[in-house]
């Protein structure tokens, strides 16, 4: 185990971190909150949602704290009007991108996007909402994939690839037309590679992948990847 030898300043507070830590890890270990969505402990950092961006002194660009390693004497700001404004805008864009209708969603009450909206006071979307309709894959006997609620965080892809070791899921197309695919874009029931382990539904931050007839609050296990990775280390 490496020592906490790196000294850095986060939001004016001097903190110590291991050389291998990211800014996010260092902040979290010191009780400093940085919002995240695509990030999940135990999975490779993705850097896609951009909610965890922070300001690093001397760097004109915003850095994702989930991917940026700490360095000595680094000065980080995790909380500024500018950052919070961007975070609110990102949450708005996510809410507007697909048809997120909390009242009829299986994840209502245990949805990370919903929680973030509450936390950051995103009480409406100033951009108009999209109402594009995506097919719902209900072919699998236990799971459902509802693209209408997907935020493309790719947690499911990463957990399937890195933890279950199967890589059933991936992304097809690009930009606004991106969507999650099963195998070579087949119905879930037709997948030969899927082991039906359900890890994808356990880590989905929203209600895009869920277990049939069960509220997400019962099936969600966010800590699963971290647990597995920890076990493997032993």
């Amino acid at each position: 185990m490496s020592e906490r030898t790196v000294k850095l300043v986060i939001d004016g507070r001097e903190v110590f971190a291991k050389p291998t830590d990211t800014i996010l890890k260092a902040a979290k270990d010191n009780g400093i909150y940085i919002p995240t969505l695509c990030y999940l402990e135990g999975l490779t950092a993705y850097g896609g949602c951009r909610l965890c961006v922070v300001e690093v002194k001397g760097n004109p660009k915003l850095m994702t704290s989930c991917t940026t390693p700490v360095s000595n004497n680094m000065e980080v700001i995790t909380n500024s009007p500018r950052l919070n404004k961007y975070r609110k805008q990102i949450i708005e864009l996510l809410l507007a991108e697909r048809t997120h209708t909390c009242s009829v969603c299986v994840a209502n009450g245990s949805c990370e996007l919903q929680e973030l909206a509450t936390r950051f006071g995103v009480d409406h979307t100033s951009v108009s909402r999209n109402w594009k309709r995506f097919e719902i894959d209900m072919t699998h006997e236990r799971f459902v994939l509802d693209h209408n609620r997907c935020i493309l965080c790719t947690r499911c892809i990463r957990v399937c690839d890195e933890i279950e070791g199967v890589h059933v899921l991936d992304v097809k197309r690009r930009g606004k037309d991106s969507s999650i695919v099963i195998d070579l874009d087949e119905p879930w029931a037709a997948s030969y590679s899927c082991t039906s382990c359900g890890k994808c539904s356990a880590v989905c931050p929203v209600g895009a992948i869920y277990v049939k007839l069960k509220p997400l609050s019962e099936t969600k296990k966010k800590e699963l990847p971290e647990f597995v990775v920890e076990r493997r280390r032993r």
């Binding site: 993705y46 850097g47 896609g48 949602c49 951009r50 961007y86 805008q89 990102i90 864009l93 996510l94 507007a96 991108e97 951009v127 108009s128 999209n130 935020i151 493309l152 992304v171 197309r173 690009r174 930009g175 606004k176 037309d177 991106s178």
Partner: peptide
Amino acid sequence: CMDESCGKCVPCRAGLPKVRE
């Protein structure tokens, strides 16, 4: 740029269509 966005990050993927709108 909207058509060519890879779709990985939210500002570009979800923001550019709104700018165009």
